[in-house]
Write a protein that binds this DNA or RNA. Structure first.
Lengths: 231, 231
DNA sequence: GTAATAGTGTCTATCAGACACTATTCA
DNA sequence: TGAATAGTGTCTGATAGACACTATTAC
């Protein structure tokens, strides 16, 4: 890092979030409709400027946005990467630090916010959103989906799309829906048992018109366990 | 992304590089000694401000820094992530977009540059640099080493630390030095053959006082192949 | 009983790692 | 010849996936 600060303006810097949740119809992403220029009226990722006096770092800014839009404070949140070039924002050279969050759809209470016309869960169809998005947000969503699909294959990440307690059958269904293929029940359970990241909730069972299923929760909700082989 | 631009100043934004190369004594990282405030006289990662009229995006800025310091244009370059908080730079809220580069030590010609007092390959000892570094660059180096060591286990990444043509024995030695353990020759070669990312250089052999070894090169120097299992 | 899902056991093809063996050069 | 590294073949323990089986509930 040199100190030859150029006379030109510093770049615009924002934090933008790809917040995913699983619905009965499939995977959805939280989008907002912009109430201000540029791209007024268009759909975009929730995000915003850094608040210099409020945000202690980039992740804190992302958590602030997540809480503002969904009310959720504890959730899986991971930085994807930074996107930056002179053209993605018509106001000039800009940097977006992109984050991905996974939440339980039932735990979120959407909040529109002052600067947005609308906020909604939009379906993911064919690995993309079926809307034109503001800025380069379509590319950011593409990178987030790529990361999600890749990481699902070798991590405990999908558990964050479920409520705190869930059955192994429900967890397997989440993996299958995101991977887009069926998994063998026996092999899946061996893998989960080996990874050793779940603990049974004592006495808690999911009851239906069949044999009841044991409920499990994450041993360490904050830690994501990586498998050493793909599923 | 909302448009409620605060009255406060936009953050400082820089690109900083962790450039690694393998020397006979071990892994080293390229550092510069700063010639300007803040942290004048201290060692830091090579990096700098975005050049609004010159850089077409963040990676172009990183490639510009890489070329300025080493003369190298083609190299493995990967964004780590962005680091940002109000305290890492005494001048105020700042963002560093961190990149990791791997180069062949013999291909680099170090260039000091106007704003730096010195530029040198510093050894990596115990997963860190044996110097106090400016800003939060020690944390960035730690993240780069973490990414390097993790990714080596399941990718073709170490090949970029070698010259264009190399033997399988040399490639195995690079994996072993970065992983810090020996690998079985037979298993290693089976893995490399399965990954199918090398091609023999016709007729080119490494000669010594033993059986000559076939030289190989990357089929696609730009693409990094990921294994589906760890080494 | 049936329907439905939970949960477990067994078999097998595959493969990573261990290890030994052959091959080819220089000195 | 010996030294050194290149390159290959064989065996074995571990295991992912296929598949069948048992278990337990509601109705």
């Amino acid at each position: 890092m040199s100190t030859d600060e150029p006379a030109v303006e510093r770049p615009i810097a924002t934090v933008d979030l790809s917040i995913f949740a699983l619905f009965p119809e499939g995977l959805r992403i939280l989008l907002v409709r912009r109430g201000n220029t540029p791209f007024e009226g268009e759909w975009a990722l929730p995000g915003g400027w850094l608040h210099a006096n409020e945000d202690s770092d980039l992740e804190a800014a992302a958590r602030r946005v997540l809480k503002d839009k969904t009310g959720i404070e504890t959730s899986y949140l991971e930085q994807l990467r930074a996107f930056g070039d002179p053209d993605r924002d018509p106001r000039g050279w800009s940097i977006s630090v992109a984050y991905m969050a996974l939440i339980d759809a039932n735990a979120a209470t959407l909040r529109r916010g002052a600067a947005t016309l609308d906020v909604a869960w939009q379906p993911i169809v064919d690995r993309a959103v079926d809307h034109v998005l503001a800025f380069d947000h379509a590319a950011i969503v593409g990178a987030a989906l790529e990361r999600l699909r890749t990481k699902v294959g070798y991590s405990t990440l999908p558990a964050h799309l479920l409520p705190d307690a869930f059955t192994l059958g429900e967890l397997q269904a989440v993996y299958e829906r995101i991977l887009g293929r069926t998994l063998d029940k026996s092999a899946f359970r061996k893998r989960i048992a080996f990874a050793d990241f779940l603990e049974p909730v004592a006495g808690a069972m999911r009851r239906a018109s069949n044999r009841p299923a044991q409920l499990y929760r994450l041993k360490s909700p904050g830690a994501t366990v990586l498998f050493d082989r793909t599923l």
